[in-house]
Amino acid sequence: MTSTYVATLELAAGAVLLSAVMTLWRRSVSSIVAMLRLQGVALCAVAVDLALHENDRALLVTGALVLVVKGVVVPTVLRRVAKWDPRSRESRPLVNVPASLVFAAGLIVLSYVVGTRITSLSPDDATRLAPLGLATVLVGYFMLVTRRRAVSKIVGLIVVDNGIALVTFLLTSGVPLIVELGSSLDVMLVVVVLQFLMASVRHHSRIDALTELRELRD
């Protein structure tokens, strides 16, 4: 039983990180969103696995919530938003794809080094994997910085959020419910805000992509 739990946990957590790296690798917006969906599902798997292992009903609910929000709602909304954008590919990232992947590898190593320092406090099966979450955060952030398209940026932001959620699950087996609720709620609200923004900009129809906006400057 334990070994299944550990194997599932490792697989799911690895999937979260892998899908984060995949978002860096792929260019077409639709496949990036698909990766995001995969990541949501993997995250849900982590939560459910932990919940079953610890008999934590609240965490089970959280897992369900994650599946709904991150596996279904967010990618769907994003797909809709992406339709507004005529150029569906991330054509000119600030750092090109191969370099990004090399950089991501470096970030993963860094998070491993840093992560072990943190997890050494209580090195159990779940906590051990926390560096994977940290790496997801860094990779997501890297995407946020280097990808120009609005949708890519939102994806990066959500990857960061997912990474944090992964760290949260692994380190604490879920913080008190209200926080988790808040966090999921928040991601959803962020998406709503973003959709609103995109729509508004479309409405004004003068600027193609939000990220091209550089009117406000010193």
């Binding site: 923004l197 906006l213 009117e215």
Partner: peptide
């Protein structure tokens, strides 16, 4: 709801 306002709130929210 001006261009500037949207740009600012976009940067702000991100």
């Amino acid at each position: 709801r001006t261009d500037g306002a949207f740009e600012a709130s976009w940067k702000y929210v991100i």
